[in-house]
């Protein structure tokens, strides 16, 4: 479904990614784990066309994403839940969700809105509130629901557990698994919590200083001594 080939990204002199290759098959949950600054977010931002790679290719369903604008990427069925949620704080919860469906003009937007409120009842209670007034966990739910409003086939999740209480993290990861197994959404998950990520994903890539160090099935990675030592503590 998604094929990242030999991607190299520079941020003003600093090499953020160096020749990384990642593939995601339809129906999978694939995770990128690694320390801060390893290049995980940069990979997602390259797919969404927020950063421009220097070298390499990103092929999604046979098309070269690097020839597309960010809004075209969304139209092709890729939604990105950015790090730090980035909800539109001055807009209401409902407006945030409706903007998630900005690329659509079918008649089912209201139905999907209703559906997201069923999936995230906390958001339904707060639908007329400004998104900036929500708690961190609620904002994460809003960011995910907003991404789902575009009806993505591939969902990019950047650090969904960041700064949240364990009980909220648990319910968010439950939703992630449910999205994958029941709604058929393919997921590329970036996470610092390697244990949690590998328990959720089918496969994983370990990024270190902008390169792929180790890759394999989640079970293999959970059993790998290097991974255990560096990321599973």
């Amino acid at each position: 479904m998604l094929e990242i080939q030999h991607l190299t990204v520079n941020y003003g002199g600093i090499q953020a990614l160096q020749d990384i290759s990642v593939t995601v098959q339809s129906g999978e949950i694939v995770t990128l784990i690694g320390a801060n600054g390893a290049g995980k977010s940069t990979t997602l931002r390259s797919i969404s066309r927020i950063v421009s790679p220097r070298l390499g290719q990103i092929i999604y369903e046979g098309e070269n994403l690097l020839k597309k604008r960010p809004d075209e990427v969304v139209k092709m069925g890729i939604a990105h839940v950015p790090e730090g949620r980035r909800v539109l704080a001055r807009l209401t919860v409902e407006d945030n969700l409706l903007l998630g469906a900005y690329t659509r003009n079918d008649g089912a937007i209201q139905k999907d809105l209703h559906h997201q409120f069923e999936r995230f009842p906390r958001l339904a209670e707060r639908r007329k509130q400004q998104a900036g007034t929500l708690s961190g966990g609620e904002q994460q739910m809003l960011a995910m629901a907003r991404a789902l409003m575009s009806r993505p086939r591939l969902l990019l999740l950047d650090e969904p557990s960041l700064g949240l209480a364990p009980i909220i993290v648990k319910s968010i990861f439950q939703i992630i698994r449910d999205l994958n197994s029941n709604s058929g959404v393919t997921i590329l998950l970036v996470e610092q919590n390697a244990q949690l990520a590998l328990n959720t994903a089918t496969r994983g890539y370990v990024l270190e200083a902008g390169t792929v160090k180790i890759t394999g099935s989640s079970a293999d990675l959970l059993g790998d001594d290097r991974v255990k030592q560096a990321y599973l503590g």
């Binding site: 969404s48 604008r69 960010p70 139209k75 704080a89 807009l91 900005y102």
Partner: peptide, 25 residues
């Protein structure tokens, strides 16, 4: 309007707006 909401989104956070599929340009 939809365009107005998109304008407010771009005003608040242009990067996030483009992640939502808004053609900021």
């Amino acid at each position: 309007t939809r365009t107005g909401k998109a304008l407010r989104a771009v005003a608040e956070d242009a990067t996030t707006a483009s992640l939502l599929g808004i053609n900021t340009d």
